[in-house]
């Protein structure tokens, strides 16, 4: 028994170095200094951002301008100011800084999102109270119903839930809307999500396979290094295709997967996009970290429409332009929805 105890003790002693040598085995990490944080964020965009060329941003020149302003004696608030100025020229809904200390707010590089903050030209509560009292809430960002004039209505605020969820719900919803004279698909406050959900839902309205976008993503540290382009096609999905007239409602707040959905829907001849131009931010986005623990978000792709053109920073323009003002909504009038309903 003494030998057993001796052996156990020996085992414990031998194991000790393994617990304490993780620093040696893991390797060096970047120091948490203002200069290192700046360099890490600049490098993160340099190595992963996919749109310097389409947005015509000279990222190297921004390093030359802003790096001299950073020193290791500056405060977090001062560093935050410089980092915000660094990414402002990107003007990209997918490029933003999210501090995790000092109570500093998220900084959006998108001029539109930063200035407007809250969407005032759409209200799902108004849709329910005035236009579709029978509106069914599937999820806080997913509603459907039928207007008194037998027009179907589906609202998507995002595509962030699993594809299987949308498949299951839409099997039932499309069956309930099959006898309507048309459908309004409302994505005026769409915050994005999964492009594969976009493709599936657009396929519910497709009768044939059509190319709607090509995608390439960053594939190396050189800003010109991308994957080979992938072609995305919309094709018929679900139990049957809905081929009666469809009006797709968009605004400047329709973004990301909502915009790839708009591309896919616009391939179908029975679809009319109405409202305002979309946000102009299509790509997949990743989050990365700084040595101080802050998060920053980077769009990694170069997404093109079916013609091979980038609409980053531009958005998808509607066939019929109409917008609500803040006062319209506050006074209980959704003129965009009224125009959509009148178009059937």
């Amino acid at each position: 028994m003494k030998r057993s105890i001796t052996l156990l003790a020996l085992l414990a002693i031998l194991a000790q170095p393994f617990f304490s040598c993780q620093k040696l085995l893991i390797g060096n990490t970047v120091k948490n200094t203002p200069t290192a944080n700046f360099d890490e964020m600049w490098k993160g965009y340099h190595q992963w951002y996919g749109m310097f060329s389409v947005r015509q941003v000279n990222w190297d020149s921004l390093y030359i301008v802003y790096r001299p302003m950073v020193n290791d004696q500056m405060s977090n608030t001062e560093l935050y100011g410089i980092l915000c100025r660094l990414i402002t020229p990107l003007n990209d809904i997918h490029a933003f800084l999210q501090p995790t200390s000092d109570g500093l707010p998220r900084f959006e590089s998108s001029d539109f999102f930063r200035i407007n903050r809250i969407q005032r030209d759409f209200s799902i509560d108004l849709v329910r109270s005035k236009y579709i009292p029978s509106l069914v809430t599937v999820d806080s960002s997913f509603h459907y119903g039928i207007t008194p004039d037998n027009i179907g209505y589906i609202h998507f605020g995002e595509f962030g839930l699993p594809l299987s969820f949308y498949k299951q719900q839409l099997n039932v919803i499309m069956e309930s809307l099959k006898d309507t004279k048309g459908i309004i698909i409302d994505i005026r406050n769409h915050a994005g999500g999964d492009d594969e959900v976009s493709r599936y839902i657009a396929g519910l309205f497709a009768v044939e396979e059509k190319l709607y976008m090509t995608v390439r993503k960053r594939n190396g540290v050189d800003p010109g290094c991308f994957t080979s382009p992938e072609s995305w096609f919309v094709k018929p999905s679900g139990n049957s295709s809905y081929v009666k007239p469809v009006v797709l409602l968009t605004t400047r707040w329709t973004s990301s997967a909502g915009e790839t959905f708009t591309w896919a829907m616009n391939t179908q001849s029975q679809v009319t996009q109405m409202g305002d131009t979309t946000a102009g931010g299509f790509t997949d986005v990743i989050s990365r970290e700084l040595p101080n623990g802050w998060l920053y978000f980077v769009g990694v792709g170069d997404y093109r429409n079916a013609l091979g053109n980038s609409e980053e920073g531009i958005g998808v323009s509607p066939k019929k332009y109409i917008i609500n003002t803040r006062e319209d909504i506050e006074e209980g009038n959704d003129k965009v929805l009224e125009a959509a309903m009148a178009s059937f």
Binding site: W48, G50, D194, D195, E196, R199, V215, K217, R218, N219, G220, T227, E230, S231, W232, F233, D284, V285, I286, V300, G301
Partner: peptide, 12 residues
Amino acid sequence: LPYHNSVSSPDG
């Protein structure tokens, strides 16, 4: 994950 650290597929 691929270099771009994201996941998406055009083929379903």
